[in-house]
Amino acid sequence: NTKMVRFKKGDSVGLRLAGGNDVGIFVAGIQEGTSAEQEGLQEGDQILKVNTQDFRGLVREDAVLYLLEIPKGEMVTILAQSRADVYRDILACGR
């Protein structure tokens, strides 16, 4: 149940992230009207890879910085997997 989305970065990627470290990086929110939303990313999706950067094992701050450093107008390719069950557990633990 993995999906790959590809879009051109606007002012931002339009994602709020949660998790990090051993639990993985998850989409915690999506800005309305962004390409990330239009391409089908959803809250609870685990981000496995962005462009050439493996997101598994990253701390959340490093994942956020990586997304911020992608220049506006560059193509962004995100490999994600729907993991809403794991995401709910992360929220319940306050991570």
Rank of each mutant, 00 (worst) to 15 (best):
R16D: 13
D89Q: 12
R95A: 15
G10D: 10
A63F: 06
D85M: 11
L79A: 04
T34G: 14
L41C: 03
L67D: 02
G57D: 10
G33A: 05
L41M: 09
M4K: 10
I78V: 08
P71F: 00
F26E: 03
I70R: 01
T34S: 15
D85W: 03
R16C: 10
V76L: 06
V23A: 09
K9P: 02
A84H: 14
G33T: 01
A63M: 00
K3H: 01
I47Q: 09
D54Y: 07
D85L: 07
D22S: 07
C93V: 13
G40I: 11
L65D: 15
A36R: 06
G10H: 04
V59H: 15
E74I: 03
G19L: 03
T2Y: 15
E37D: 13
Y87A: 10
V64A: 13
R60Y: 15
K3R: 06
E69W: 03
L48C: 00
E39C: 15
V27K: 11
D11V: 01
A36V: 10
G19R: 04
K8G: 06
L79E: 13
R56Y: 07
G57H: 12
I78T: 01
N51A: 05
K3L: 01
D85A: 11
T2H: 09
G29L: 01
R95Y: 14
D62E: 15
F55L: 03
E37F: 13
I30G: 02
G24T: 05
D85P: 12
Q31S: 13
L67T: 05
I47P: 02
P71M: 04
G73L: 05
R16G: 03
I47T: 07
Q38E: 13
E74F: 01
N21E: 15
N1V: 10
G19D: 04
G19E: 09
K49N: 08
D62A: 13
P71W: 03
R95W: 10
G20I: 02
G33L: 03
P71L: 06
E74C: 07
E61T: 07
T52Y: 05
S35V: 12
N51H: 02
V5E: 01
L67W: 04
D11N: 10
V59T: 15
E43K: 08
L41F: 03
E43F: 09
G57F: 05
L48A: 00
Y66G: 05
T77E: 13
T2A: 01
R95M: 15
F55E: 09
L65G: 14
Y87D: 10
E61W: 00
D11A: 06
